[in-house]
Design a protein around this nucleic acid. Structure first.
Lengths: 231, 231
DNA sequence: ATTTGCAAAAATATCGATATAAAACTTGCA
DNA sequence: TGCAAGTTTTATATCGATATTTTTGCAAAT
């Protein structure tokens, strides 16, 4: 039998649905940094009761997507250059580690998933439209494929949070003008990983993440400059 | 004026109180691994309503202290040798990184806090009683002091989770027979950190964490062996 | 003896309402 | 005008009750 209309994605409970929706809206900038998250308002907006909302917000607070101050409600986590730098540095550390473990333990399935996801990503990067949403998905799949051989549950968990935190900065800073010479970097990543060359693969991933962050940071700096001029 | 009797620790809300209490009870083995966490039961046990409880459990799930399956409630996160190994490896990676940053950026305040907390830890380690709870606190303070110069908010966050996860294994495995030749390792840590010798300090922390984990692992293995014999 | 189906029981997830705390807004006074 | 204390307003945190969902128990059939 078909599932209930409200049960779209993999979410079994209203809590999960609210969690995923809020998370997505924060990552995509629908909910602005530092914005107050009033329960009553969200209730009508998302069509769920206060309890599942508060549970979702509690989880998001643990993930660092919202801040929660006792008796003073929730807000969307603020964004800053320092935070981006922090996330970037740690993401590099973790993704390097995960990549190394993958290169060590990855088998045939791992290799073919890298080839396949790279191919899909390539198609989007070389296409005319350059749909940002499509690119985000393919980019995510490719990076996931690279570290799919990593067996560490905890590394996976933390990496996932940082990837999405990073994505928030990407999305807010460069919502439209995404792809550039990223393609070469992705190619280098694929090649070094398949060659099982840990050293060069790590260098490649570090370079890749740093470049992305730099561009994001520049846009971020320009934006904050504009805000000061207005004020 | 004195605070309300229910407002003991730093917890402002019932949610926070429940969170801290549950977290502590899980870490200290009061709540056993894989144990079912029935809301109705916890309500009477902890004296709070269902909402704050569910919020606390949601947060703990995000931290990996409990598992939450949709429509099937919460359980205490299970424990396993693989999980311990996983936590250990990642904790080493993160604590090394945090230590390096501390050695780079730490100032006078950082140095003196290391000396002070080491002294306090030394006192407990060399005393006759060897109170495990006291040791845990002092050990925590010392490790915190070592990485106090680390400016990365995210590194701090993840490290904190892993430290407590590790602590859970320590507590359950060796609730009574704690200190041994750890003292030498702590001394080496203090000396290399104050000498600003990143390389040796990192080696020392790796060795230290690995040794602790090994002992825990041995006890864990013996326990699971006993269980199999009984069954 | 094992399985299948149904009914009863238990537990979860959720909503609506209330108590409580923080913020905003006066009003009185120097 | 500036400030401070009290008052209203707003929003949060919490509880009690309800509606689903899952599990359990039991009987009938293979």
């Amino acid at each position: 039998m078909a599932k209930t209309s409200t049960e779209q994605n993999g979410a079994k409970t209203l809590s999960d649905q609210a969690y995923l929706k809020l998370r997505s809206d924060i990552i995509h900038g629908v909910l602005q940094p530092d914005e107050k998250l009033r329960i009553e308002h969200l209730r009508t907006e998302y069509g769920v009761g206060a309890s599942p909302l508060r549970e979702a917000l509690s989880r998001l607070a643990a993930d660092g997507f919202v801040t929660a101050e006792g008796q003073r409600g929730f807000r969307v986590a603020p964004m800053s250059e320092e935070d981006l730098e922090d996330i970037t540095r740690l993401r590099i550390l973790l993704e390097k580690q995960a990549l190394c473990q993958s290169i060590e333990h990855g088998g045939d399935e791992w290799e073919s998933q890298i080839v396949a996801s790279f191919y899909q990503l390539e198609k989007v990067e070389e296409s005319e439209e350059r749909d940002p949403a499509e690119w985000e998905m393919r980019n995510h799949d490719f990076h996931e494929a690279l570290i799919a051989g990593c067996t560490s549950k905890w590394l996976r968990r933390f990496y996932g949070i940082l990837y999405d935190q990073h994505k928030r900065y990407r999305n807010i800073a460069l919502s439209t003008e995404i792809p550039r010479d990223l393609h070469q970097e992705h190619e280098e990543l694929r090649n070094t990983a398949l060659a099982r060359d840990k050293k060069r693969a790590c260098d490649a991933i570090e370079h890749h993440i740093l470049r992305t962050a730099e561009i994001t940071q520049r846009v971020l700096r320009e934006e904050s400059l504009q805000k000061k001029e207005i004020a």
